[in-house]
């Protein structure tokens, strides 16, 4: 994995701050204690703009600072209380969620076609987050799955779908405005093929493919 540069650090910090800033306004809580905010928009943007590693780190920094007690989590709260509450799993799930969005987004660039991008963002931003959040919610509340779906999933799905769409539209605009900002990466099978092809003949050809392939091998 390439070294984290000063620029990476600043981007991670800025996007952690962006999630905090997007979480601040318009916080509201439904009966049952689950807040709705633009927090998830910030989380999805971190993945879709910064990619897998930096996006996941930005979300991690945001979550850590929130848990330390800075009032930057949904509902302008902060502190470890959130972690033990029913919604703690959603907060934790943001980290793998952003990782998955970032990983997939880097494979979809530079084209970043609309439908695959929507699927990728929904996979990380909805599927992964709920896969962590819902079991956590069930464990803390002792509620049946049906109740949890009605309380912690269904009311939020429309909002989450809108945020997925907004994330993709924004990411598409940003990547168009800043081509090359986020490095595109090949799918694992494509990278393996490229490495295999390159390993056989001319050494010069491996110069481009090899680092990407090594990077792939290193991250799995």
């Amino acid at each position: 994995m390439p070294r984290i540069t000063a620029r990476d650090l600043a981007l991670i910090a800025a996007f952690a701050a962006l999630i905090a800033a997007l979480t601040m306004p318009g916080a509201l809580e439904l009966p049952g204690g689950v807040p709705i905010t633009l927090q998830t928009l910030g989380v999805m943007l971190a993945g879709a703009i910064l990619g897998a590693r930096n996006g996941a780190l930005a979300v991690t920094v945001y979550v850590v600072l929130g848990l330390i007690g800075l009032p930057i989590l949904a509902g302008a709260t902060g502190g470890l209380g959130v972690l033990v509450g029913p919604t703690g799993g959603f907060l934790v799930g943001f980290i793998p969620g952003a990782l998955v969005i970032g990983w997939l987004t880097q494979r979809l660039l530079p084209k970043y076609r609309l439908l695959p991008a929507l699927a990728a963002t929904a996979a990380g931003g909805i599927l992964v987050v709920y896969l962590v959040g819902v079991p956590w919610f069930l464990a803390v509340t002792g509620m049946p799955l049906g109740g949890a779906l009605g309380l912690a999933v269904l009311p939020f799905l429309p909002g989450d779908v809108i945020k997925v769409v907004v994330t993709v539209l924004v990411a598409a605009a940003v990547h168009r405005a800043r081509p090359g900002f986020l490095a595109a990466k090949p799918w694992p099978w494509a990278a393996r093929r490229a490495a295999a092809v390159a390993a056989v003949p001319v050494a010069a050809a491996t110069l481009d493919a090899a680092p990407a392939a090594a990077d792939e091998a290193g991250s799995h």
Binding site: I12, A13, A17, L18, A20, V61
Partner: peptide
């Protein structure tokens, strides 16, 4: 850096 950036980004 993040703590410093929150008011900036807000």
């Amino acid at each position: 850096l993040t703590i410093r950036s929150v008011p900036l980004v807000a």
